[in-house]
Structure formats: C-alpha cells, structure tokens
Amino acid sequence: MPHGYDEYDETFTSEYLNCLGNYLLLSKSHNCAVGNIVFARKLATYTHNAQQREIATFVANKQLWGKDAIQLRHDKIIEALMTEL
C-alpha cells in the first residue's frame, strides 16, 4: 500500500481500528497535524516519547501499519499489563 495502511475492510474496521494496539498517546495538536498523512511521514513525527518511537518496532521495513503490526502491539501491551498484576 503506497499510503502505508491496511485496507479499511470490514475486518479491519471491526477488529483493528479501535483496538488497543492501534491507540497512541499524542497531543491533540500532534494528532491534528498528522491526521491521515502517509504512514512513513507520520511515523517520522513519532519522536516525543518512548511509546511513540516504539511504533517503528512493530512495522516491518517501516512500510505498513496494518493488522499484523496492530496485533503485535496489542499483544505486547496486554502482556505488560498482565505482568504488572
């Protein structure tokens, strides 16, 4: 995908779009500024904290933010939460 995102098909919309792994802490101004730009350009702005910088580790070749990357990140967040309990 030249834009760097998975297709927003029914599965993506229902299972991944609002998944914990797809959420990222951003300021409102940062989120508005990056909006729906090409993922590679958006990724380059994720420099403000470790959580943002970590996004690159979930993306093979920094090319596609999609179901696989979102699931990997989701699983890592859940594992961290469960370890803390």
Results as ranks from 00 to 15, higher is better:
residue 18 N to V: 12
residue 66 G to R: 10
residue 67 K to N: 03
residue 1 M to Q: 12
residue 75 D to G: 04
residue 34 V to D: 01
residue 31 N to T: 05
residue 17 L to C: 14
residue 16 Y to D: 00
residue 6 D to S: 15
residue 49 N to K: 02
residue 46 Y to L: 13
residue 61 N to M: 05
residue 42 K to V: 12
residue 24 L to N: 14
residue 45 T to G: 05
residue 34 V to R: 01
residue 63 Q to E: 03
residue 2 P to Y: 00
residue 44 A to R: 01
residue 72 L to Y: 06
residue 24 L to I: 15
residue 71 Q to T: 11
residue 9 D to S: 04
residue 36 N to P: 03
residue 28 K to V: 15
residue 54 E to D: 11
residue 53 R to D: 00
residue 23 Y to R: 12
residue 44 A to F: 02
residue 61 N to C: 07
residue 38 V to S: 08
residue 19 C to N: 15
residue 77 I to E: 02
residue 3 H to Q: 14
residue 27 S to M: 08
residue 40 A to D: 11
residue 46 Y to I: 02
residue 80 A to H: 11
residue 29 S to I: 00
residue 52 Q to D: 07
residue 69 A to S: 14
residue 77 I to P: 07
residue 53 R to G: 01
residue 29 S to Q: 15
residue 57 T to S: 10
residue 42 K to S: 09
residue 16 Y to C: 02
residue 75 D to L: 03
residue 75 D to E: 07
residue 53 R to C: 08
residue 63 Q to S: 07
residue 20 L to N: 10
residue 21 G to F: 02
residue 82 M to L: 06
residue 11 T to C: 07
residue 79 E to G: 02
residue 61 N to Q: 09
residue 80 A to L: 13
residue 41 R to I: 08
residue 85 L to Q: 08
residue 62 K to L: 06
residue 31 N to C: 09
residue 7 E to P: 07
residue 42 K to F: 11
residue 66 G to M: 08
residue 74 H to C: 09
residue 51 Q to S: 00
residue 32 C to R: 09
residue 71 Q to F: 09
residue 16 Y to Q: 03
residue 56 A to T: 03
residue 34 V to N: 00
residue 37 I to F: 03
residue 7 E to H: 08
residue 39 F to P: 01
residue 25 L to S: 06
residue 36 N to S: 07
residue 14 S to V: 03
residue 18 N to R: 14
residue 47 T to R: 11
residue 19 C to G: 05
residue 60 A to D: 10
residue 74 H to S: 09
residue 52 Q to W: 06
residue 44 A to G: 01
residue 1 M to D: 15
residue 64 L to C: 05
residue 42 K to P: 10
residue 2 P to I: 02
residue 6 D to I: 12
residue 84 E to N: 12
residue 71 Q to L: 14
residue 69 A to E: 07
residue 18 N to C: 15
residue 2 P to L: 03
residue 57 T to P: 06
residue 79 E to P: 00
residue 21 G to N: 01
residue 40 A to L: 11
residue 43 L to N: 04
residue 35 G to C: 09
residue 10 E to M: 12
residue 79 E to A: 10
residue 31 N to H: 13
residue 75 D to I: 00
residue 37 I to H: 07
residue 80 A to I: 04
residue 36 N to I: 04
residue 33 A to I: 01
residue 41 R to F: 08
residue 61 N to K: 12
residue 76 K to C: 04
residue 23 Y to Q: 13
residue 8 Y to F: 15
residue 20 L to P: 11
residue 32 C to T: 10
residue 20 L to E: 13
residue 11 T to D: 11
residue 76 K to P: 00
residue 24 L to Q: 15
residue 13 T to A: 15
residue 67 K to S: 04
residue 50 A to N: 09
residue 26 L to K: 05
residue 35 G to L: 05
residue 80 A to G: 14
residue 45 T to Y: 04
residue 76 K to I: 03
residue 1 M to A: 14
residue 56 A to S: 13
residue 52 Q to R: 06
residue 66 G to W: 07
residue 72 L to I: 03
residue 3 H to Y: 15
residue 9 D to M: 06
residue 46 Y to V: 01
residue 42 K to M: 14
residue 42 K to C: 11
residue 38 V to T: 11
residue 30 H to K: 13
residue 28 K to S: 15
residue 53 R to V: 04
residue 76 K to V: 04
residue 28 K to Y: 14
residue 38 V to K: 08
residue 26 L to G: 13
